[in-house]
Design a protein around this nucleic acid. Structure first.
Lengths: 294, 294
DNA sequence: TTGTCATTTAAGAAAAATTGAAATTATCTT
DNA sequence: AAGATAATTTCAATTTTTCTTAAATGACAA
């Protein structure tokens, strides 16, 4: 007999609630059912999963198991949902994964068009970073992907979607924004510069070099924009990201920074509902045209 | 009631064998058990998973389910193994993921040192591409990672391991190898050049530009070396990869290609057996020194 | 100590999975 | 097209597993 999924599910619930009664309540089971299940899991592993007698503190092994089990359960549930949706959708399910900036731009409109033109279609939209987009495609967990740059992938066809000029983002009244002449890299990448994840896509040597001395980084774009709108700080972002800037923040090109972000559209071959996925890609492609020739 | 892991396991076995009897045999169950389980799965989804009456041909939905189920099962089993190993290992389990080139270099020695110096330790070594190494670290599926380039990751510390000069690889008697003066990019990236995955790490503008006109690519390094040793073709690889070249193939620097591959060592914070993981990183680090100052 | 709260235990009940044998359905052969 | 063979399904009986109820144990604080 091996470890069962239900055992892990119970275990995780107990970890989250910190006691049997609450976990049992949440799962619609009794305390004793959980108690026995945990005991079985522990005896299978030959070690305790919790510290002390109560279920409030994990042992080191428990920590490890919790982490693994948690992500496994999440994945499993996601897979089940995906299977069920596919099975029940009359016009199929299209799973689209995209980097957040493009997702914000594309998803609302895409959702509308799909729903209007393909009755009964189901759509699953996810925004993550390029790495995970590519991964989802590779694992068959997404049918369509939008990501930065080109990545060769088996069973997936890629096509360039649009290019996206990098430029300065700063508060409207920041000197670098308001000054007459266009700023240069060296003006921008100074002590008021905040690095962000998208900066890593830039290969312009002068910029890469300047970036080495920057020591403020903000991972989350929303926090980044917020910080910038306070007035003191600036950053560099692709132009389409700035479609969502508040009026207190503005975008302008940097004279000696020609770098563009290449956004690519990926499509899995041999998908369940070919036509639906084709239509989806068509919509995305059409939208991209709006950005290609502004 | 929801989809169960066992149902998917049965389903996959039937898909693989193509008939119930064989699958039942493999799983140590009877035909009827599988038949009922499949029926249950199908009625849950409301659609057939197979085409026709026999179990030899999947329906489109079946294809989709099979693919998802297959990868899920694989992951689950891997997780179970990882949990069990962790639980039973007296000195813990260290899961190391590395890009193949460095893995080939480091794993044999590392395995020996770990076994010798940390009695009872268990080691799990995996070689994949950089993307998956980073992913394993992010998902808590690896404790230590070796990958090309720097990637910021939550809960993971990174440190540069060594740098690896890119250069020409060709048959010993290939003109570009045997000629007196060092070759240039334009000599190398010609009609006899084969592109490979590691080429994408190179950012030297002249090389990137030249690469655009190359239309032969080999993904697998082993096949690549084999092809090269035939005599006609050449490629570009990092120097450490060449530690495993057959004598018929040689490495030499390219005069105007300064590109280096940066290899980084990643280590998850808050691992189960801190000391063991520390020791492992120490060993890897020490080995890297051999390549830093050759 | 005593009372409360959390967990465990044990025995029976309920649910789920598995089996064996017979029945059905498909495929092949002639 | 009929019979033979192979594969799958059905169904009731059985086994296994999981869950519940109810009572017992253990920890902890007043």
């Amino acid at each position: 007999m091996t470890i069962k999924l239900a055992e892990l599910r119970y275990f995780c619930a107990v970890v989250q609630t910190g006691n049997l009664a609450e976990a049992a309540d949440r799962l619609g089971r009794t305390q004793s059912a959980l108690s026995m299940s945990l005991k079985q899991l522990e005896s299978h592993l030959g070690k305790k999963l919790f510290h002390g007698e109560r279920k409030s503190q994990l042992s080191p092994l428990g920590e490890q198991v919790y982490e693994l089990a948690q992500s496994q359960l999440q994945q499993f549930d996601q897979m089940v949902e995906s299977i069920e949706t596919t099975a029940h959708a009359s016009n199929g399910l299209v799973r689209v994964a995209s980097v957040p900036s493009v997702a914000a731009l594309v998803f609302p409109k895409l959702l509308g068009q799909m729903a209007d033109q393909i009755p009964g279609v189901k759509i699953e939209l996810r925004d993550t970073d390029t790495r995970q987009v590519i991964d989802s495609l590779a694992n068959g967990k997404a049918d369509v992907g939008i990501a930065s740059g080109y990545h060769a992938l088996n069973g997936v066809v890629a096509k360039p979607l649009f290019e996206d000029q990098f430029g300065l983002v700063g508060a409207t009244n920041h000197p670098l924004i308001s000054q007459a002449q266009p700023p240069l890299i060296d003006d921008v990448v100074t002590s008021v510069f905040i690095r962000n994840t998208l900066c890593d896509l830039i290969r312009t040597p002068g910029f890469v070099k300047a970036l080495k001395h920057v020591n403020v980084t903000i991972q989350n774009n929303y926090s980044l924009i917020n910080t910038i709108s306070a007035g003191r700080w600036v950053s560099v972002l692709p132009e389409t990201v700035t479609a969502f800037l508040p009026s207190s923040v503005a975008f302008r090109p940097i004279a000696d920074l020609p770098a563009k972000r290449e956004v690519w559209l990926y499509r899995r071959e041999r998908t369940y509902f070919e036509e639906t996925v084709d239509a989806c890609c068509g919509f995305i492609d059409a939208m991209a045209l709006d950005y290609k020739q502004p």
